[in-house]
Design a protein around this nucleic acid. Structure first.
Lengths: 247, 247
DNA sequence: CGTGGCGTTGAGGTCTTTCAACGAGAGTGG
DNA sequence: CCACTCTCGTTGAAAGACCTCAACGCCACG
């Protein structure tokens, strides 16, 4: 039997745990990702927990690869996960960074259309595909929630296409920082975590690491942002950052 | 009362018709877009027809604009429609070309996240949002079909992100031609219609019209494709076109 | 027959990439 | 505790891919 979380990738250690009972999942949901809970829907929650496996994924580890049989669906409860597609020669495009509460693996095909890898140590809930689908039949509310999520993901994808197709390097970086700041729960002036590497940022924005670094330094030099360390930034001048993003 | 199909845009003429009965919609579905029919689901068909309005849209006319209140959903039964987003300064990114059978306007928000405009003369079926949603409640099969569509659109969007973020101009044009050829029902050697302008192609691929033109001419000159006229092409050497697309 | 939109082609410019070197920090092993 | 190494990030200089600007031909339309 195939278990997610140990499909290769150097370093780190993936481990899958036995199914957990209501309390644990619910706690996690309520505490860490209210959205997940809502997705599950009240009545479906018990049934969902019965088919849940918890996955712990160390930073850098692969959850699944593009083309793998899509036998599982996931929700992220802790950490950051990136999903990406690759070309034969190694060029990579990261199509999204997932945060706690996000769904993952919603593929209505035989195999995953993209790869998923942990950016930081991550915690996920895994649902076997067939059992989840059966559950979907009995709970239209759950299906509605999934449709809603797919729809908003589609909107985000279109926004990203606009960025990749039509924005300059400066605009891409500014847009990225604003999106991160928007998703970050903290207050305005607090430092926003930047958990991904420059490689990841570059592959998300369709740039090179050098260009990302230059644009970040330029934004810092012009006083738009502050970079306390490599993995945090602070929005200093929101107006100018917004202007730079060409929204 | 607001009717789609006359929201501005120069030239052409949009017209909305009275609701049509079963026979007409069904005919259209069966003949032109089997996928639409399947989407509707057997039992839901009668109810769906009762809330259907047919829309005829002349080439170049706007169906709706980004930000408009999303009070309608559509299926395209004839023609080609483009959906796009724009930046404040006029830069445009076309995020998709829709063909007969495609769904449109699936926004679970208050307003459309993108604009839609006819590339060629087009025929659509319009469903009022609230009545369609109510219908969705009673027909889970329809909801499942929508989820399936949203899911495959998402996969297509990710593929396009890979193209926009990581492919060269040559690879983008080659990928575009292959995608068109794949969707075209005709046999291998038949000329494939290229209904959109060079402007549209450029804005879909994140390039300029000049670059698109140059790449098309280069592909023709190297014997990979044939360009009988401005709005048709023929795949001459499929292997080399595939190689050029960097799939 | 003039006009305007669209597509093609050429020449030059620019933004981003490529290539290269260097510094900082973490982990390793002596 | 201190080299040593490796990865990541930054910075500079040169190269290149695509864009911008411009001119021209074609065709539909009035």
């Amino acid at each position: 039997m195939r278990t997610a979380g140990n499909t290769g990738g150097p370093g780190g250690e993936g481990a899958s745990f036995a199914p957990v009972r209501c309390g644990v999942l619910c706690e996690d949901c309520r505490v860490r990702a209210v959205a997940v809970c809502r997705a599950m829907g009240g009545p479906a929650l018990d049934e969902l927990e019965a088919i849940t496996t918890r996955i712990r994924l160390a930073a850098g580890r692969t959850l699944f690869d593009e083309g793998d049989p899509a036998d599982g669906l996931f929700t992220l409860t802790e950490g950051v996960v990136k999903i990406f597609k690759m070309l034969a020669d190694g060029r990579r495009q990261i199509t999204g960074f997932l945060l706690p509460g996000d769904f993952l693996g919603l593929a209505f095909f035989r195999s995953y259309a993209y790869s998923a890898e942990a950016v930081t140590d991550a915690l996920l809930c895994r649902f076997p595909r067939d059992r989840f689908m059966a559950l979907l039949e009995r709970h239209p509310a759950l299906e509605k929630e999934l449709l809603s999520r797919a729809s908003s993901e589609l909107a985000a994808a279109q926004e990203q296409m606009l960025l990749l197709g039509r924005k300059s390097a400066k605009e891409r970086v500014a847009s990225f920082l604003l999106a991160l700041a928007r998703r970050h729960p903290g207050a305005g002036a607090a430092p926003v975590p930047l958990p991904m590497s420059r490689y990841d940022i570059a592959d998300y924005l369709g740039l090179t690491i050098e260009t990302v670094s230059r644009e970040l330094q330029a934004a810092r030099a012009s006083g738009v942002i502050d970079l306390p360390d490599r993995h945090h930034f602070r929005v200093v001048d929101r107006q100018r950052l917004l202007a730079a993003a060409a929204l």
